[in-house]
Amino acid sequence: MSDKDSESISDAELDRQAEVWEKIAHRPEFEKLLTAKARFIVPACVFFLVYYFALVVLVGWFPELSKKRIGPANLAYWFAFSQFFMAWIVAWIYVRAAGRFDRLSDELLGEHAQPSETPEK
């Protein structure tokens, strides 16, 4: 991470560096990594937010349904309880997917990022 003020380098130098980074960012390996990440993270976030707020909506607007008994507890409790497992399962699936992202990014760094090419500041 650079501690240097971005104002303190000239525009020409900034653009030269930007061009180098743009090239790296446009490599197929990097684009593959970003697509893979977005394909996982965006649906995962949508899913967990919908699942969580579905509970809040159930509890807030459907009091009769919430009270419905299922076994020893009611629907509201079971749905709340299931949130814990939902969170753990999403986290577990993410860790597995992230292993794949790590390999993609290792490939990219290992094969292509020669230190001379990436401007150190």
Binding site: L14, A18, E120
Partner: peptide, 22 residues
């Protein structure tokens, strides 16, 4: 902000690969 846009690619690469991280 020209400088913010110019450094976006660098930030993106570093954020997602960990290149140059502390």
């Amino acid at each position: 902000e020209h400088s913010a846009e110019a450094r976006f690619a660098e930030m993106k690469v570093r954020a997602h690969t960990g290149h140059g991280a502390e």
